[in-house]
């Protein structure tokens, strides 16, 4: 990883909710164009971490900078796939997906082109004019993913985005995600519970400890894409991460 350009610097990051210490003096860098996975026990503060990185929540101590500046949604092109269902009930699939482009003032023909492309990619064709109350949970999740992708963000935060998807859609979207990432080389922070998914997708895995949360270890995954989950090297890394985690013990 050395020699790569640092995109985001996290220095001495602390976040408390009242007396509850959640993030505890975290220090690490995120590189330009990196695919980073964050795994950790439930309730350790992964969602909080995403919210703090993007300044949706104020931090208690420390600093997070992107290219030397504080992250600012108006200046930086950031997208967020929230863990909870976040479709906007009164917007149709089409209108919901285009919200980011609308806010950023992209012109109409370009909006149409990009939204069409992403709808096809996420398998939502034919449902453009449906409201969230009329589509399934997995489709709502795909709308949220499409909405985040369509703005072609420099930094994409995904907080357990594939939890609602069935195995087949999950594989296909994982592969598409890799493809998009390889093509565009955006920086992705991907939070998951699923260790296999983490090893399958990412270049580097941050394994978090229990609260107050620090980084237990970084695991590099230097396997070429497409990865084979039966490859002995893949299995070896997955087992290593599993050993590190073992939060059920």
């Amino acid at each position: 990883m050395s020699g790569r350009k640092v995109k985001i610097e996290v220095r001495d990051l602390c976040k408390c909710f009242g007396d509850l210490e959640v993030l505890n003096h975290m220090n690490f860098d995120i590189y330009e164009g990196e695919f980073l996975c964050v795994v950790g026990p439930t309730g350790c503060g992964k969602t909080t971490f995403c919210n703090v990185v993007t300044r949706l929540l104020p931090l208690t101590q420390g600093a997070i900078t992107m290219g030397g500046e504080e992250i600012d949604f108006k200046k930086h092109n950031v997208s967020f796939v929230f863990q909870e269902p976040s479709c906007i009930p009164w917007r149709t699939v089409w209108d919901d997906i285009k919200i980011g482009l609308q806010i950023k003032g992209v012109n109409k023909t370009e909006v149409r082109r990009r939204v069409n492309a992403i709808i096809e990619l996420t398998g939502l064709t034919g449902f453009e004019h449906f409201y969230p109350s009329q589509i399934s949970a997995s489709m709502k999740q795909r709308v949220a993913i499409a909405r985040a992708f369509v703005t072609e963000p420099d930094l994409l935060l995904m907080d357990e985005p594939f939890g609602q998807l069935d195995t087949r859609t999950r594989f296909s979207i994982e592969n598409q995600l890799i493809e998009i990432w390889q093509k565009t080389k955006r920086t992705i922070i991907f939070v998951t519970h699923n260790l296999e998914e983490a090893v399958y997708l990412s270049e580097r895995i941050l394994v978090c400890t229990q609260k107050p949360t620090g980084i237990k270890e970084e695991v590099l995954v230097d396997l070429p894409h497409p990865r084979d989950i039966t490859d002995p090297k893949f299995v070896e890394i997955r087992n290593r991460v599993t050993d590190l985690v073992k939060w059920w013990e």
């Binding site: 600012d72 949604f73 997208s79 976040s86 906007i88």
Partner: peptide, 8 residues
């Protein structure tokens, strides 16, 4: 938060 995260 959705529009906010897009800089609205």
């Amino acid at each position: 938060e959705v529009p906010k995260s897009f800089g609205a």
